[in-house]
């Protein structure tokens, strides 16, 4: 059974995952991303230089995205990568729900980046880089004999998890600064409100 190359305007983009010795499969396991050009009414400038991704692999970071696109469209330089894998409800904002001082303007701005869960935005340096990358992606998914293998994690799991624990333990200096900045900001907003 052949896999459709396009679903609802999205390009179906298969990659292989780095094999695990515990998964007894004969062939490398395929993972599918669904990619199209980004569209947005609020931030057109950003939209036209970005590609919208559904279902990026779990290990996707700015660096793994760069590696992936380098092998498909080496000329297209990536500027940024936004991923929502948190599965949070954007409509629940405790600060907004508990305070009248909440800055609504700020809210609309950040909303532009509020991607659906499991989706990502690859931002290229300019529109043409994005267009080029998309053309190459189409070609890849149409004809690629050899699928690209998604980059592996760069660090071993034990190190990755240990680092996560370390990150929870905040440096006193950093947190002090963050607290003072936040409180200054709060004072300012309170003063403005009055």
């Amino acid at each position: 059974m052949s896999v459709p190359q396009e679903i609802k305007g999205f390009q179906v983009v298969p990659v292989t995952l780095s094999p695990s010795k515990f998964l007894k499969t004969k062939e490398p396991v395929k993972h599918y991303m669904y990619i199209k050009k980004h569209q947005s009414n609020t931030d057109k400038e950003l939209a036209e230089k970005s590609l919208f991704l559904v279902n990026p692999p779990l290990a996707s970071t700015l660096s793994s995205m760069k590696t992936f696109f380098k092998s498909i469209a080496p000329e297209s330089l990536i500027e940024n990568y936004f991923l929502n894998d948190e599965d949070l409800d954007y409509q629940i904002n405790l600060t907004k729900l508990t305070s009248e001082l909440y800055d609504d303007e700020q809210d609309t701005k950040t909303n532009a980046f509020k991607l659906p869960n499991g989706c990502a935005l690859v931002v290229f340096v300019d529109k043409s880089a994005a267009n080029l990358a998309f053309t190459k992606i189409k070609k890849y998914s149409k004809s690629a004999k050899e699928l690209i293998q998604w980059p592996e994690y760069q660090e071993s799991a034990s190190i990755r998890f240990a680092k996560m624990f370390q990150q929870d333990y905040l440096s006193t200096e950093a947190i002090s600064e963050r607290v003072s900045a936040a409180l200054l900001d709060f004072d300012r907003r309170e003063a403005e409100a009055q």
Binding site: P19, S20, F22, L23, P57, A157, S158
Partner: peptide
């Protein structure tokens, strides 16, 4: 995509698996 999920889980687990 079960197989991909299994594969991902194993990759995240890395040396712990």
């Amino acid at each position: 995509n079960k197989d991909a999920i299994f594969n991902e889980i194993l990759n995240i687990s890395g040396d712990l698996a």
